[in-house]
């Protein structure tokens, strides 16, 4: 017998809460961090686990809309995060076509690859960072700061998918 899934709106509501909290976090300073440019990129950290877990069968159109929403709230240019999320999505798709990511170490490697792809696209499309200046170092440190946040989101999505 086919049972009706009543959890769908509830899980989207949870995702909306996470999204709003992420918007809030992206505007809060981290304690003991003088250079605000080293704040982690919370949205890249959020979208990677969502794509990898295929949260509620998230498709390319939803990823695009989320990207546009991020651009409207915190982005520099409309389309910047949309393009980043799209490239992360398609990279995940292509990587899964050619490789198998079964063991935890392989999955962690996949996270790293997608993070780097995300940062490359953000760095290339940003109007605030100049790639010929020392801003490349800032992107590097920002990248390091984002890794733990990405794994925190991974844990949240794991818990949500287990329920």
């Amino acid at each position: 017998m086919i049972s009706k899934n009543n959890n769908l709106p509830q899980s989207w509501f949870k995702f909306l809460v996470i999204f709003l909290v992420t918007i809030l976090l992206s505007q809060i300073n981290l304690p003991f961090l003088n250079d605000v440019r080293l704040i982690p990129d919370y949205f890249i950290a959020l979208i990677i686990p969502a794509i990898i877990f295929r949260f509620k069968n998230i498709n390319i159109f939803i990823v695009f809309i989320l990207g546009i929403l991020v651009d409207l709230f915190i982005g520099e240019l409309i389309g910047q995060y949309a393009i980043t999320f799209l490239i992360i999505y398609i990279s995940n798709f292509v990587l899964h076509k050619f490789f198998v990511f079964k063991s935890p170490s392989q999955v962690i490697f996949l996270y790293f690859i997608l993070l780097e792809i995300g940062f490359l696209v953000i760095g290339a499309t940003s109007i605030s960072y100049l790639l010929q200046n020392s801003d490349m170092y800032i992107l590097f440190y920002k990248n390091i700061m984002t890794i733990p946040i990405c794994f925190i989101y991974k844990l949240i999505f794991e818990k949500m998918s287990n329920k």
């Binding site: 546009i68 389309g79 949309a82 393009i83 799209l86 490239i87 398609i90 499309t125």
Partner: peptide, 12 residues
Amino acid sequence: FFLLLLISISLM
């Protein structure tokens, strides 16, 4: 993907 990529680049 290519369609949305085109839209994103145009928007940017």
